[in-house]
Design a protein around this nucleic acid. Structure first.
Lengths: 193, 193
DNA sequence: CCTCCCCTAACGAACGTTCGTCAGTTTATA
DNA sequence: TATAAACTGACGAACGTTCGTTAGGGGAGG
């Protein structure tokens, strides 16, 4: 399917140059066609962008939800650290997560509302399932604490900081160091002594 | 000085729309002149951008270094939490930190090298002074741990996640919750029991 | 005091280029 | 032959930039 090729190229250029910096002619060049031909598949730049955005959202959401559906309430240490590794893997194997991160925090001005809706949606779902997991772990005395909210928000903070580090790719060792450091302190902060 | 007004307007539009999305005519409108007049003060768009960038860098660096120069090695809890509050205050009182954050992680493609140099410079300095503080705190048995690197990197992660939350301004309460959660877990993770 | 000169700051006009988009036409596939 | 997808051509608008030209404000020399 040609429209998937277009979306793939669009994803690449939107990620690197942002919405305003990415041009349809670049994208068309990448798939070997003229920019006008894009209009046979999409209504325009906004339409293309929003479809790429929704694809990225779906990929991220389904990956994360699937991960949590396969874990129990016995091994928070393994499962939480595994989640961080999942995020890193997702980031490296496709550009969608980087695109998603960029557009979540620095959206094109005229699409703020549309993007915000998607971001809030995915955020609420991830936070909800994570919070229920922390709730289970607390009940099972697998971690320290009384409220599930605190470790949930703190963990989401770790995820964000790791993603920022991933954007900043130049140094694989620094990523590893930062992951180890954040995880070590975080786990000590929520585990029993 | 008129060129400061131009830089102020440029900061605003670069922050909101990014480098490619900000136009000289918008910036000129903001200060009540034509875009051609900008060329009486700056060589071009790149020159204007880089001057804004260096101003932002200097503001951030001097604020942070000044904060650390005024603290001792006795009260890490107060001083570290105070640093997070400083970052939040800086973010709210001027746009430079938001601009800096955006351009650090999503720089315009043709200026990547120039921006990277500034980012690495500031990053190394902040990390170095923070690490020396953690070293002192460990020596003074004020916090738990053997290496200063681990808490340093973990704390920088907290700072990053808080800044991301600040970009995402819509919810003041969420910021407060996230700060409290991250800080609570972090402090428990590095303090003695 | 006056005038000549240089400087800064701003201007209108125009440059060449690229942008996103639309219309009409050809090509290929089924 | 019908339909979808690619093409060519053109559009107005905006982009960053350059040009030549004003208006005004010191200093210097007569």
């Amino acid at each position: 399917m040609k429209s998937n090729e277009i979306k793939e190229a669009a994803l690449k250029y939107f990620t690197i140059h942002g919405y305003e910096g990415a041009s349809l002619s670049q994208i068309a060049d990448e798939v070997g066609m003229k920019k006008q031909s894009i209009y046979a598949h999409f209504k325009g730049k906004d339409d293309l962008f929003l479809q790429v955005l929704r694809d990225a959202k779906e990929t991220e959401l389904s990956s994360k939800l699937q991960y949590f559906s396969n874990i129990g309430s016995q091994h928070p240490e393994k499962d939480l650290y595994g989640f961080l590794q999942l995020v890193i893997a997702l980031f490296k194997e496709n550009e969608q997560l980087k695109f998603w991160l960029r557009m979540s925090f620095f959206p094109p001005a005229h699409l703020v509302k549309a993007i915000e809706k998607e971001v809030i949606d995915i955020e609420e779902k991830v936070q909800a399932i994570l919070e229920s997991k922390f709730h289970d772990w607390i009940d099972a005395k697998a971690i320290f604490g009384d409220s599930a909210k605190t470790p949930t928000l703190a963990f989401l903070g770790i995820v964000d900081s790791i993603m920022l580090e991933l954007v900043y790719v130049n140094d694989e060792k620094r990523l590893k160091d930062k992951l180890e450091a954040s995880w070590t302190v975080f786990w000590r902060g929520i585990s029993h002594r």
